[in-house]
Design a protein around this nucleic acid. Sequence first.
DNA 1: CTCTTGACGCCGG
DNA 2: TCCGGCGCCAAGA
Length: 103
Amino acid sequence: MLSAVLPENFDELVLDVIARIPPRHVMSYGDVAEYLGVGGPRQVARVLSNGTGDLPWWRVLRADGSPAPQIADECLAHHRAEATPLRPDGTRVDMRRARWDGR
DNA sequence: CTCTTGACGCCGG
DNA sequence: TCCGGCGCCAAGA
């Protein structure tokens, strides 16, 4: 079934997931969408661009572990602060070690 | 209604 | 590994 109509509370669903990502862990925009079973990376990204309140928005990044350019500095600062595993270059999170599967 | 935008992702060179 | 190109799809102009 293709349905795929975004639920009215899609924003809440996305924010709920973000709230559950443990420190030192991250999910890609696509991971969040897949986890929810609805929407896609761009839909998730748009929700974040609308504002996330006090939630750890920096724990959601691109599939390759790099942060969106626009918020890169802030994002990396948070990860350095909580010691999220980064790749040698220090500009990307080490997805292999930091990706959260929801468990 | 059509056209553009964008905190994305995958693939090929 | 780095880059460009193309697909994707809701939202706003």
